[in-house]
Design a protein around this nucleic acid. Structure first.
Lengths: 113, 113
DNA sequence: TCGATACTCAACCTATTGGTTTATAAGCCG
DNA sequence: CGGCTTATAAACCAATAGGTTGAGTATCGA
């Protein structure tokens, strides 16, 4: 379970981490600020950041005594791309799945995983 | 970690389950067929399917001695929607993030999580 | 230099995950 | 009925996740 996509999805599978990413979408922030909204220790925040970093979703730099974190969107884009494969399925507004299934089956290039 | 989005992302954070979904995109299939590509027991497959079902990603019916599984795309759509929030960040092709950050900050409606 | 602040590392705890094996239920068919 | 196939349930196990506390490192500021 340590391929890139799995790491990204696993990192997203936690509300605290998703909230951290949402905060980072507004701009870089140091660890303490990222942890402020949550009722957990700074160490726990540090662990969450490590998970996000391992998934490539954030990068950390150094600025004095602070370690500002910055959102890295590339993995989100890959994850979004994987999900987009299935757009045809949920866009079938009439519930006639078969048509779209045919379309998917007709594809040559779906690297399924 | 048991809200809807977390369940969906957690379910997607496993290559076996993603491959199962990819197979199901081609149409419903019974458990044995879904497990055929993998070198794990039928019971393990059953567990994976239970995870997918709890996330709402599949539904199971009954047809004689088989339990065909069907892909349910709605949760994928919600997950995709969450990720799409960040499209502005990764679409900044010039790497000038600040502009996009300003745009995001200007939003009134970002339900962050 | 000393104290406060920001952050991380290490050890520990409990719950969950992903797999196993064994046993059980349900439906087909001879 | 009896045996085969499909599928799930339950108990178990090692590894991981998410949290804690305690200790340690690094930087600022007086």
């Amino acid at each position: 379970m340590d391929d890139g996509l799995s790491l990204v999805f696993a990192a997203l599978a936690d509300p605290t981490r998703r909230a951290i990413l949402a905060r980072l979408a507004e701009g870089p922030a140091p660890v303490t600020e990222l942890g402020r909204p949550f009722d957990i220790s700074a160490q726990a925040v540090s662990k969450h950041l490590k998970v996000l970093e391992r998934a490539g979703l954030i990068s950390r730099s150094r600025q004095g005594q602070w370690r500002p974190c910055r959102l890295e969107a590339a993995p989100l884009e890959r994850a979004g791309g994987w999900i987009e494969q299935y757009r045809a399925v949920w866009e079938d507004s009439l519930g006639r799945l078969e048509q779209e299934i045919d379309r998917i089956q007709g594809r040559q290039d779906h690297a399924d995983d």
